[in-house]
Simulated scan of single mutants.
Amino acid sequence: MSKDNKSTGPTQRMLRVGELVRHALAAMFARGDVEDDALRGAVITVPEVRMTNDLKIADAYVMPLGGQHAEEIVAALNRNRKFIRGRVAPQLNLKFAPELRFFVDDTFEEASRIDALLRSDKVQRDLQADDEDGEES
């Protein structure tokens, strides 16, 4: 792989392995295999897993249902990541199991913020002004 290809985004293999890790994590969380007080009763979704080029690190973006206590849940998952790695590794069929790192998934929050901006009075005024300018042309 040349230097130029590194900036083009994830390879098909990175995407495939990321999806395998995502599914394995989601199944594990659904079963409640991780015993930690912070995770008790939490329904955790795994919207995305990003793999490094060498497939040695998996960054898992997670969000508890309702978004409550997200930071605590991510901290608990990171405390238990060696256990989680040991349970997920056999399902991946890879030479080496990737190191897992957990992060709060903020894509929904960001989308809500953008939506609120687009609905703001100032943006609506600008859009109406653009429509009026377009009609005069």
Rank of each mutant, 00 (worst) to 15 (best):
E136I: 15
I114V: 12
E19T: 09
Q128V: 06
D37F: 06
F96M: 13
P47G: 04
R87Y: 01
R101D: 04
A58K: 00
T11F: 06
R85H: 12
T45W: 01
D133T: 05
A89Y: 02
A30I: 04
P64A: 08
A116V: 00
G18Q: 00
A111C: 10
G32W: 00
A75Y: 05
S112R: 14
S120A: 11
V123M: 13
M51T: 00
I114H: 07
I44C: 03
E19M: 07
N5D: 14
T107M: 14
A70N: 05
L118S: 08
L117E: 15
R40P: 00
K122F: 11
D115I: 07
Q68Y: 10
K82I: 10
L94T: 02
A60V: 04
L55H: 01
N53F: 08
R119G: 07
D4V: 10
Q68G: 09
E35D: 15
P98D: 04
E71W: 01
S2V: 07
A97R: 01
R125L: 08
M1A: 14
M28G: 06
S2K: 13
V74A: 00
Y61H: 08
S120Y: 09
R31I: 05
H23A: 12
R40T: 14
E48I: 04
A27W: 03
R113G: 03
D54F: 04
A42L: 02
R101S: 08
T107S: 15
N53K: 14
A97V: 07
V123P: 04
Q12P: 03
R13Q: 15
I44A: 03
P64K: 05
G66L: 11
R22D: 01
E99A: 12
R79N: 13
R81T: 05
F83H: 08
D121M: 09
Q91M: 11
D4I: 10
E19P: 02
V43E: 10
R16K: 08
G134M: 15
A76L: 06
R85E: 08
R79S: 08
R79H: 13
G66Q: 12
A60R: 01
R101A: 10
F96G: 03
L39R: 00
K3P: 00
V46G: 06
V34S: 00
A30T: 11
G86I: 07
K82E: 11
G67P: 03
V62N: 02
N93R: 15
I84R: 00
R113W: 05
Q68R: 13
R101E: 09
N53Y: 10
Q12Y: 11
A70E: 03
A97C: 07
K122N: 12
L77F: 03
A27I: 05
R125M: 09
R119P: 05
V43P: 03
F103W: 14
V123G: 06
I73S: 03
A42Y: 00
P98C: 02
I73E: 02
